[in-house]
Every structure is written in C-alpha cells, then in structure tokens.
Design a protein around this nucleic acid. Sequence first.
DNA 1: GCATATTATTGGCGTATTGCCACTTAATTG
DNA 2: CAATTAAGTGGCAATACGCCAATAATATGC
Lengths: 245, 245
Amino acid sequence: MFTSEKEYLKHYNIHDYDVPLVSVDIAIFTLLDGKLHILLVERADFPQKGRWSLPGGFINQQQDKDLHATALRKLTEKTGVKTPHLEQVATIGNAKRDPRGWSVTALYMGLIPYAPTADFIETVADARWWPYEVAIKQNLAFDHIELVTQARERLRVKSGYTVLPVYVLNAPFTLTQLQQAFEELLGTEIEKKSFRRRIQAADLLEEVGEGLPEGGRGRIAALYRPKKGSEQHAFIRAFGGSEED
Amino acid sequence: MFTSEKEYLKHYNIHDYDVPLVSVDIAIFTLLDGKLHILLVERADFPQKGRWSLPGGFINQQQDKDLHATALRKLTEKTGVKTPHLEQVATIGNAKRDPRGWSVTALYMGLIPYAPTADFIETVADARWWPYEVAIKQNLAFDHIELVTQARERLRVKSGYTVLPVYVLNAPFTLTQLQQAFEELLGTEIEKKSFRRRIQAADLLEEVGEGLPEGGRGRIAALYRPKKGSEQHAFIRAFGGSEED
DNA sequence: GCATATTATTGGCGTATTGCCACTTAATTG
DNA sequence: CAATTAAGTGGCAATACGCCAATAATATGC
C-alpha cells in the first residue's frame, strides 16, 4: 500500500481511527492530625458537574513531554500542591467508565507532607483534603471510588516493605512520629523495637539533632530526615540473600 | 455553557480534541531448554515495517470490554498463544515514542509454559520465541527495547517474593524443575534447602504422585502442581506479622 | 547381580531476624 | 521533688536462613 515509512506517515491521520479518551488521575495522600487524608476536587463543569473526584485531566500534547509531566501539571493546576513522590499505580480502560465513551486513565499515587490547597484554582469549583474514610463514602465521579481504593491499596502494601511513609512527614521527625505514620498508612500496629531495628538496619535516615515534636511531652527525642537517594529501598529480603555491602 | 449532563454529552465529540494514540503491548515470557525466552513479532506493515516488536495493537471499541481484553485479543491474533498469567506492568506515554505522534501504551507481562506459535497469522510477518539475551540485542521497533527491559525487571523482582515462576512450567513438575525456573527468572542461584523450605511453608503446591522429569536420571521425584487460588501469594513477611491462619 | 553415577530428599547446626515485654533514661508538670 | 510522659535499650525465646553433609532411590555399565 505504501512504499516507505515516510509515505505512510504523510498519509497517517489519527482522526481516521476510533480512539478512546485518555486521561490521568492522581490520588494524593497526606497525614493530617494523625489521620490519612486524600486530596479531591469538586468538578465545576460537565460531565459529572458538582461531584467530587480525583484531580486529573487530559494530556496537552504541546506542554507535556510525557505522562508523568501531565500528572504533575494537572495536580498543580487543579490543587496548587506539589508532591515529592509520585508513582504510577495502574491504568484502567474500559467502555463504561466515562459517559463520553471508551476511556483510559492512568492512575498515579503521590504522598506529601500536609500543605494547604491553593486559593484560586482554574476549572474546578473547589479542592480540599478529605479524611480518607469520609472520602470513600462520598458519591465520587465516574469510577473514582475504585481508583481511590486501588491507590490506597498500593499505599498500604508498599508501606509494608518500603519507607514510603516518610513522604507524608515534614523533616525533621522523630522515630515515634515515623512509626505512627507507618501505622496509619499500614492500618496496623507495629511493635516499637521491631520497627526501630528495621529502620536502623535500613540505614535510610540521618540524625539531625534532638528536640521535641510540637506540643510534645516527655523525654527529648532524636530527630531524623531521609538520606538522599533513600527513595527506593525495600526492607525485606527476597530469595538469594542480600546483594549489598 | 450547557444546562445538563445530557445536553453536554450530545455535543461532545472526541474529534474536537487533540488525542494521543493508545495501544497495548504484551511481553510474554517462557522457559525453553532451561532458558528465558520472549515472544516477538515481525512487523508486516508500516510504521517500522520489518522490525521485530512486542505483540500489541490498538483498542477495538466494539470488541474489547476493557484493556485486559484488548491485550488478550491482540496476543491471540498476532501469535496464537494463550496465557494463564497476564498482569499490567506500566503505562508509557510521551511525545517521541511513536513517529505518528504523542503515544500511550499499556505494557502487559505474561508467563506461559512453552507452546509453539500459530502458523497462520494476520497482520504480522512472523511470530517467534527468542532467547531473551538475543532478543534484547535486536534493533526492536519503537521503544520496545525499554518495554522489554521493564517487563523483564518486573519479572525478576516479583519472582523474588511470589510463585510467579510456576507459570512457565507445565504441571506436574518436580521441585528441582521449579527451582531451576526460579533461578533462571531471578538470574541468581538459590540454596536448595532454603528454596524447599520456603515453597513448603507457602503451602501453594499439591503433590500429584511421583515420576521422573523427561530424560531424567537418578532418584524418582515427587511431582507437584499449583493449588487453586495460589495466584497472588507473597512469600515474605512485611511489617506487622502474618495475617493468615 | 553389583558397583557406580545421578538425582531427590532430609538432617542438623550455627547465625541472623523477629516478636515480645520490661527496664532505664530524660524530659515536663504540679 | 514525686508523678507523669515519652524515648530509647536489653534480653530472651522462637523462628527463619545459609550451609553442608548424610541418606534414599533410581538408572547405567560391567
């Protein structure tokens, strides 16, 4: 049909094809008053006007060099927050999730220390931190309840074998604060000594003096911050023993 | 602008927007002669005609109820194989990966016991199992070398803490065969006793008699197959201790 | 039939890791 | 200065892991 790649590309037109919608949605979590919160926006326009949803939106082919950039841009535009950790969770695509037609969305999950949302926001009616347990009882837009649940599950599982929870704390923090963050994100209690042993063995934190957490009582505590490059450390040994050291 | 959701949807037309390409690519691995192999197809048409790539393609909005279905359909159409395990690895989207424009692809990874590819295949020139190390030295189409590498990495990591490798074996198999599968997929040797202890503790296999593997010598071995529902078991304890039993 | 080679399976032990709980230390509060 | 609060440590039993060797069960060569 075509004689060369060049020839083929000259005649290629995406509008000849039946393409799905493609969007990005971002589930951002933080800790506020010791409780897990999630950032939602209220939709200002159709479809699903007035309902709460994850921040997200469409790719801008001129502005975004890749999907990750789309996620960061949409998050900032719609909520005013910036995240130190953002990872892809999954991509959900099917015929029914959006009334406009076959739709694909790339779901991202991020963690940040608590920060207020921006006052003036384009294209959304409101942006607000919701306690997680309250958020999932809302009648969220589209299939966002499932997206939220998937992101929460990723957060829970990954908190079991990485230091992800450090991203919801402002450094410096005490080990007890860190343990409480782990416990809230994991949804389970951790034994103090086991926790400290594992954190110490991982060698991911550096001490930066001592102090009391705000409003704290009792003995003064050592303060820590994450070491550079501690991002991807996994605690747990897989088959074959440790590669390090 | 619009007064109701219905009104809005009536006027919505996806062709008014600048949408990216959306595709699915599938990295299928197996074990052949003890070595990791990957299934590639030779492109019969432009773009990238004549180069080898992962099997994949575009969503068919009529046929496919979701992305997973797209992956399964494309795999069967292009290679004739069916996979007992298929999981999403990541979604890659950027402006440069496809000469036709901004492109998003959902990458899947699958594992199967060795099975020959189909003889007659539409839309591809050829479909063939390649030894992994040979495959990655090919000049693959698009950014498929990166996709292949990502899928391989997922396979390696997940083989360290799940029973994923059982999916490259035909049941029944011996523990030694299973260990060799683990070792090839992990890229490292495992101590025999440790391996057996962990597999037994996981309680994921059921014994189905004894026998010798094909061409085997020496003592007769116990034969196993995966128990139903063993799919998602993780070996390793995360924080907080075991939930089970 | 019998020694030899080959592979499967189990035993055992020293060491590392984990769960558990109590104890000590250091600050604040009244 | 005693009581309270919270940080940090000690220690031990139970479990898990790495390592190596012993034993068991089969085929093969003579």
